[in-house]
Amino acid sequence: MTSPAPRPVSLITGASRGIGAACVQQLQQAGHQLVLVARDSAALQALAAPGDLVIAADLCDENQILGCFRQVQQQFGRLDHLVNAAGIMQDSALALTKTSSLAAQFQLNVNATFLCCQLASRLMLRQKRGNIVNFGSKVGESGSSGQAAYCASKAAVSGLSKALAKELGPQGIRVNVVAPGFITTALTAHYSDAARSELVAQTALRRLGTAADVAAVVGFLCSDAAGYVTGQVLAVDGGLVL
């Protein structure tokens, strides 16, 4: 009789709210052993299942990111899935965007994602198998007026992920991007009712997306059903046309 396969170990950044929190619930239901990372420790504790590892960390600090992965190594000695859900969006017209805002969005959306991929891949290389899900955006693929810095950062995530899919694929590591459309989370809470109505009209399915819509696709990518899927940008946008 063979022993049951160990539960997959999955690390989710930005796990305290929004899409990240929905991913936590999705992967918990799929039986994953989770590592929840975000700044808000209390929110993470509220989401964590017994046995989940909670790490309060600021992903804008490289040493704190390294500390997260050291904890994973010490506690589990492996990592099967990385979901880079942490992100920041600051809307502003080109003329009104400070370079500090550009840098802040790149720091979290790109630099932190890059470093997490780098460290996760080293843990995954040990078993010659792994899966990374990064978060792009519909607007990173098609552009959006008033979001130049955010669009640039999300387009960078797509480029990064396609390169990593090629570099890490021979080692059995898959890398994909989930590109949400308009999702009703805290990140988009500042949108007016009129703007939301306009977006609904531009969406083929005539509704705005939910965090659960996105988490379901992340769940697919973190399953064996996606074992031959890599280097892809999967839009979860209800058919939104910008």
């Binding site: 891949s121 843990l123 290389l125």
Partner: peptide, 21 residues
């Protein structure tokens, strides 16, 4: 370069540490 990645993973696993870039 590919073997170098594998080497780092092997060393980190053998000595239970994570190296800096």
């Amino acid at each position: 370069s590919t073997a170098h990645m594998l080497l780092i993973a092997e060393l980190e696993n053998s000595f239970n540490l994570m190296l800096d870039t």
